[in-house]
Amino acid sequence: QNATLKISHQFPGGTVTEGDFRDRLTRMFAAEVEKRSKGSLKFEIYPGSSLMKTNAQFSAMRKGALDMSLVPLSYAGGEVPEVNIGLMPGLVTSYEQAYGWKNAEVGKELSRILNEKGIVLISWIWQAGGVASRTKPVIDPDDAKGMKIRGGSREMDLILKAAGAAVVSLPSNEIYAAMQTGAMEAALTSSTSLISFRLEEVSKALTTGRAGAYWFMFEPLMMSKAVFDRLSKDQQATIMAVGAEMEAFALNSAKADDQAVADVYAKAKAKVVDLNPAALKKWQTIARATAWKDYGERNENCAKLLKLAEKTL
């Protein structure tokens, strides 16, 4: 049957060929599905949270009030604690490992849990991130000691605190100003956001995720199960197939952004450094004792997911 599906996301809007890769991905996905379904499926894309607030998307999909969304999974952590695994520091340290999840036990279990909650995973997208700093580069946990850092998520805040940092929380549109005035000294976020927030203008150092990172975020393209179930078998198959095909594009774009952010910061005369394996290990050790422990103790599902995820390390 014919349907027009709405895809919502929080990233800047562009076109199929220009702009933020996460927006481009939704547009490529839409065009390809429309073509293969011979026009029976059409899409409307709402970039930049122009449909609803970022935090409302997951719940709206569960209720069938929103068809699709590309959103960091861990944002729904308050509603469904299991999804916090999507941004667990040090649990994923490379793209190879990240993209292996889909077909590993942990991926299957995560899909099952989300299905139960009314969500279908369409496209598995992962992104590495880094740290922009207005003072010195943050590589080792010791570097973070006493610094005012925005972790951006519950789990990142936990490891930063354990490392002795002063964790600050503020809305993302204030990040630039806060870095400028010094209300905040460093921020952890994805390479793509490090570019789009233009923090290089107010930063003196950048730690990239090029050579491995403890900041890996799962931001899948998802669909409401209620909506998915209403589609024909053919349409469902098309959506799943195109979703899977998009993953190669996502992987390449994410890696390209990891490089691009280094270039942008280097051009702005910021000191660009990579995370070394020894430092990564230190962060992981902290995470195991704080964020992982906290997560594993949430409920049985979380404990199980954590165990399965550790197998992929």
Partner: peptide, 14 residues
């Protein structure tokens, strides 16, 4: 019923 909280570190119940 679901024990929902905000997704911050503080995580107070919604």
């Amino acid at each position: 019923v679901d024990g929902q909280t905000t997704s911050s570190t503080f995580a107070p119940p919604l």
